[in-house]
Each structure stands twice: as structure tokens, then as C-alpha cells.
Nucleic acid binder design. Structure first.
Lengths: 210, 210, 210, 210
DNA sequence: AATGAATGAGTGTTCATTCAT
DNA sequence: TATGAATGAACACTCATTCAT
């Protein structure tokens, strides 16, 4: 694929679609899909509203594009290279660190993906949901492996996977880059909690053994 | 058609405000605040749009009313009576069971309270946030007590409280009343996970002791 | 039907729907349905565009209303009282005079009814077409009677009915109230032509007998 | 993909103007000038909207081109060769047959020419109207000749010419190629009616002589 | 001769809200 | 307490047209 893949030509304004995506991402994350008008997006891009329709047939298509490409990027980024994932080779650790890092880097995409699902038309919704389940199943498989090896003790791996993802995904809601906790520290805290939540010998064991 | 047409409630129309609240709750939860019009609410209530303004000065006030009263109801419901909370007297158990039960019973209120925060005007937002922090601080206090007593081992009780609440609050997103898991079973699963996540001797303890 | 049928009250603006109809009639006739905007209608009525929607759910409904009520009024007006129809008791004469008079009085309705058929949605189109056929069948029945009695000589009464109506309906296209020909004179001219076109012994008879 | 991609016509695209005319004709006839967009025409031609402006300076010019060339083609086609006109040498017969045949062959042009007059700018309107009057005057002259010779009895030849043309021009509105009546049969029926409508001794003569 | 991107005005329609009744 | 009619701003989207390439 040598030259064929190049854009037709780096024409003036040929990056408008990308700028529309960026503006819509920012505005949808901030105010919600339904509360953002095409006029606002156009104005943020620095273009007339009608120009948006040269790049996206409807407002809904912008949302769909953002959500689908987020899920695909997320899945494409997995698995992370070993050196990215840090010193630990434990799969659950790798997943937790990966998820936190990725979600703190793409806060707006994440936020939209969780908030605007109901504003997707049924067909796009189904596509996004399928990707989401693919992602969940990565964690689920890790939990199942750990359960088989006896490292984890989990009543329902599907529920546990969702619980863990919910816990991790809540981070960007309150995390502030210049807050008291570094991203690394947060990673450590959550890693510990996640490990504990699926550990083979939790506190309850000792209680129950009383 | 003499009496049959009377409303079940004593004075017809006297409960309109309540019906507005109920309709708005349902519609906001389903479609989002910004995507629901006063006309839709009115139509659901069975009244003309202008009639809504006899009960709420603006659309925004309906949202504020729903969110504030939800937070206040939630805080009023705590602490649950002992017999409601079940056999366990452990405060963390009580909180987890209470949270799951309450949130599964009031799914729409919960959903709105997490989704529509950004659609609140700053002043109302601050009020709701204050209530939310009060609620978080209940759990935070429990975690701190456990940490002092040595029962829990927690790096940051504030982070842990938020992590646990995020994990629990995700349940209504996927829980189906006629699904394979009963509410009781879910309670048990999450209880175990939460206990593990804060347990004094998790899996990592043994690892670290290597 | 003593009091119940009265309008709720002769409120201010309660005649807006009628004024919308009148404005739309005038504007559609002048510029065509597709070329007239709701804003133009509203401005002609002296109201904001959004106010139109209190009276007609869509622009299409205004057109439908105009066309259907025109056809119904036309059919309701038939048959004319004897004294209206003039001295002649011949049914064809009565029809021709009636048609010309009615169509010269309601030029705008007539014009719209012929020009804007294709802008009707299929369902409304079918309704209007049904009324049109009912009207054509009045003339067709007259022609059939005349044919049976031997007064007329007609190859196909359906075709003849349509031909006559087309001929008559073209009048308002060029008729000017202050032109050289009075409505009465036009009536006489067309009456003669129509009679001739269906006469039992036309010119061709003598030609053919050569 | 060497040669297969070439258009059938000698130079690809060289006939675009003609294809624009054909598409616009079809679409204007079907939906009306005002309801057809340049985008629709372009899409029907298989070209981008901006390409249309290489061939016609404005949308209005397409309409003007279609209407003027129709009227000119119609006038150019008159008089028909004798053998085309059929066995009859009577000028009125020749005209009626010619008109019906021509109008059944060019239904779309005819339809547009009658429907879209009001969408022409005044200047083009005047041009088309002049052509129309030239055409009417052909029939008017025939009627005047017949009147002078005593063959016809006509109160107003201008009115009669318009009446006859209106009657004939209505045919394409209901004629269906695969309907029960052949074009030839329709010709005969209308011919008879037209003859009768201007005949020197119509039915009324005998009635009045009673 | 054709394209892709843009414009600025305009489309039908909906919005939250007001107000006399 | 409810209504019907109105407002003025806004909505997503389309329009005919332009222009650099």
C-alpha cells in the first residue's frame, strides 16, 4: 500500500471532517448530545452550519462516528505492549492499568460512550453494544482463567467483569489532573482494590472460618 | 357518565404536580432531560403544556426538584432499620445491601441523578453535589472506622468510597428483574467483592510477603 | 342544536385558522404550494410562523384542507336551485352554467385543485380524486341520459365528460373580470360549443352523408 | 479496465447538457419546478451539483430552455406532412389530429409548459407566452376561415380556439398508453366533438327552430 | 468539464414560555 | 387550575450558487 492510500490531495480545508469530530467530541462531552446544536459545532469549527453536511449527513452520524471509532480504537489498543503495561505480567494487572490509563487519556470519548448510548439510533446502538461486550469479554476471560487456576474466587465472572469496569470507569468523573493524586497513584489504589475484590482468600474467609 | 369519570384521588387535578413529577421522571430517565419537551411531559400527564406552569415555574425546576428530592429521600432512608438490613450488623455490609436495594428500587431517579447533573444550573448543581458528598461521606466514615480498627486496609478512603459506589451504582445499568440473577444473589456477589476490595489481607499480602 | 354548537367563545384571534386558509389559498394560487413558505403565510396572516401550528399540524395539511373543502363545497353546491341555473331546464345547460359560474367565482380554489394535486400525499390525493370523480360522474350521467334519449351522439361518455370539463375549466386561465367578454356572454359561447360537441346531428353527419 | 468503461457516446460527458435537459424535464414534470432541487437533477444525471453550472447558468435557465424549446419544436412541427396528418385534408381535422398526437408524444414537455409558466421570470414568461399565442393563432385562423366559408358558426374565434385547445390539452392528464382507448380512437372521439362544437348547424339550431 | 468544499439565506417545524380567559 | 393562542428564538437540515483545483 505505497501511494494509493494517500488522501486525494492535501487540499485547503481537507481536514474539516477531523475538526468537526474534535469539536463535536468536546461539546457533546461537555453539554450532552441533545443539548449541542449543529450551529454550535459549526461555530466551534469555524465554518457555516451547512458546511458540516459536506462531511456528515446528519448530527446523529457524528455521534455514531465518535462512539464507534472510540470503541474500535479502544479494542485496537488492546493488548498493550509489555513495557507500556508496566512491570507486572499479571493479566488482571495489565488490564486494570491499561483501562485506567486509556480512560484517563480519552476522557471525553469515554464520557460520551457511556452517556449518549440512548441517543443512538437502534442500529448504531447495537453496533456499539457489540463492541462494548467484546471489551468486557476480555476482562471476563482473564477472570475465568484466574478462577480456573485457583488464583481468584468469583461467584459470577460476567457480573464481576461489569463491576470492575464500572468501578474503573468512574475514575474520570472525579479525577483532576492537577489534583492531589497522580495517575500512577490512582492506578495502584485501584489495582489493589480490584485484586482484593476477586482474591481467593478475602476477609470473609477468615470471618466465615470463625 | 356521572361518577365513573371521577379520578381515584379525592379532588381531581389536585395531584397534578405529582403526576408531572412522575411523568418527567420517566421521560427524563428514558430520553434525557434535553431530549424531553414540556409538551411531551404535558401529554404524558394528560394536560396542556401551559398547565405545567401552574406547578413548576420552569422545566429546569422540574429537574431540580427530581434530583434534590431523590438525594434527600436517599439520605432520609439511611440508616435502614436493622431488620431491613438483614442479618449482618457489619456497617459495610449494611451500606452495600442498602445501596443496592435502594438503587434497584429507584432506578429512574438514580439514572437521572447521575446523567443529568450537567444539565442543572450551577446553583442547583451545587445543592445536589452537596447531598451526594454527604452520602459518600457515610461510606467514607465506615471505611475509616474499619481502617482504624484494622479490619480494612485502604490507601485512600475517599477514593475507595467513590470506587465502591461507582461499582454498585453500575448495577441498574444491566440488571433485569426477570434475568438469571435475583436481587438477593446480586447483593451477595457484590458484598463479597466489596469486602475483598478493602480487606486487610488480600491476595497481594501474600505476594508482598514473598 | 341550540347552544352546544357554538364555538367555545368568540375569543380574540379565534378566526386565525380561517385567515390562514385565506392567505394560503391566495398564495398557493399565485405562486404554487412548493414556492410558498410557512413564513410567507404567517406574515400574510399577521402572525408568527409558529402560530400557524396551533391551527394546522403541517403545511401539507393546509393544502389538503383547501383542496378537500373545495371539492366538497363544489359538490354541496350541486344541484343549483332552478332560478340560479337560469331559464333553461336542460340538464346539460344547467351543468355548464353552474360549472362556469362556480369556477369563475372560486378561481383560486379551482386553480389550486388542478395544479397542486401532485403535491398532495398519496392518501389525501386519493380522497380528492374520489371527489373529483364524483363530480365528473354528474356530467357523465347527464350525457348518458341524453345519449339514451337520442338527444346526444357520444362515442364515449367518460371521455366526453372529461373533455367538456377540461374545456370549461380552462376559462379562468384567461378570463379577466374587466375584459371584453362578460361572464354571461362566456356562458352563452361555451354552452353553444358544448351542445354542439355532443349534438346528435353534427356537421360531420352532413359531410358523411355526402 | 481498459475500454469497457467508455461511455457509448463518442466523447464522454460531451452530452451532459442534453442529459441535464432530459433529467430536468422528467423531474419538473413529475414534481414541479419549485419542488425539484439542483441536487436532484445532478444526481439523476450522475454528476455533482456544481457540474450543472458548466451547462446552465441557473436553475431558472433550465426551465426557460425547456419551455422555450418545447414551444419552438411544436411550432416547427407545424404543419405536419399530409401523409402524417391522415386521410383528411380538412384543416381543423389536421390541427386536432396533429395537436393530439404531438401532445401525447411529448407529455412531459406539455405538462411543464402549462404548469410552470408562473415560475418563469417575467421576461422568459413573455417569450413563452408569445409562442403560445402564435400557436393559438394557427387554430384561430382555421376557425376564422371556416366561419367565413360558412362551414362553422362561432361566436368568438379567440374563445373557441382556447376552448378547443383546453379540451385537447386535457387528454394527457388521464390518457394511459395501455388503457382501454387507443390514441387513434381518442383522436376520432375528440375530432367529432370539436367538429360539433363549431358546427354550423348544431343541435340547438333544430331545438330553437322548434 | 467536473469536483469537493464552502457559503448565506432559507426550509418546515419545535422549543420553553406567557397570558387572557 | 386549566386552556388555547400566541411569541421569538432556535432547531436540523436544504437551497442555489460559487470557486479553487
Amino acid at each position: 500500500m505505497p501511494m494509493a492510500e494517500r488522501e486525494p490531495s492535501p487540499r485547503k480545508g481537507s481536514r474539516t471532517a477531523a475538526r468537526v469530530r474534535a469539536s463535536a467530541l468536546k461539546l457533546f462531552a461537555r453539554h450532552g448530545y441533545a443539548a449541542v446544536s449543529m450551529r454550535q459545532i459549526a461555530s466551534d469549527v469555524g465554518v457555516q452550519p451547512s458546511a458540516l453536511y459536506n462531511h456528515f449527513p446528519t448530527k446523529q452520524d457524528i455521534l455514531k462516528d465518535l462512539m464507534l471509532s472510540h470503541m474500535r480504537d479502544l479494542l485496537d489498543a488492546w493488548p498493550p505492549f509489555a513495557d507500556e503495561a508496566g512491570q507486572s505480567a499479571d493479566p488482571l494487572d495489565v488490564f486494570v492499568r491499561f483501562h485506567i490509563r486509556y480512560h484517563l487519556q480519552r476522557r471525553e470519548e469515554v464520557f460520551i460512550s457511556y452517556m449518549e448510548l440512548r441517543n443512538l439510533e437502534p442500529e448504531s446502538f447495537a453496533e456499539v453494544e457489540a463492541e462494548r461486550r467484546r471489551y468486557e469479554s476480555i476482562l471476563k476471560a482473564i477472570l475465568e482463567d484466574g478462577q480456573k487456576s485457583g488464583a481468584y474466587r468469583i461467584a459470577d465472572t460476567g457480573v464481576a467483569a461489569r463491576a470492575i469496569i464500572a468501578m474503573l470507569t468512574g475514575i474520570p468523573n472525579w479525577y483532576r489532573e492537577n489534583g492531589p493524586l497522580s495517575a500512577d497513584k490512582i492506578e495502584e489504589i485501584y489495582l489493589e482494590m480490584v485484586r482484593g475484590s476477586v482474591a481467593a482468600t478475602p476477609l470473609t474467609a477468615s470471618i466465615e472460618s470463625d
